[in-house]
Amino acid sequence: MRKYIVTLLLLPGYIASVLAQSSDIEMADQFRGEGKIYIVIAVILLILGGIFLTLLRLGKKLTKLEQEIEDEKK
């Protein structure tokens, strides 16, 4: 019985400490708050777009070459 009472008494403190811990963990909150993360996203998206464009164009060039070789064989 005493064990349970002790547990009950300690529980609120434990929960509070866990909650305190999770908000103490350092995250880039200020960086996000200032909206700078969107600049990073824009830069990455531009790079990604460039890569996609290159892949699409490479595919088109291959299609053309495949067609040419197909025509030559006829």
Binding site: S23, M27, I37, V40, I44, L56
Partner: peptide, 28 residues
């Protein structure tokens, strides 16, 4: 290919913007 492009754009945007769990050591 369009699915790939949409999914990856979504991954970058949502992956960097959405809330993530606050974990020790790992942080951001």
């Amino acid at each position: 290919k369009w699915v790939v492009m949409i999914l990856l754009v979504y991954t970058i945007v949502a992956g960097l913007v959405m809330a993530v769990p606050r974990l020790p050591i790992l942080n951001e």
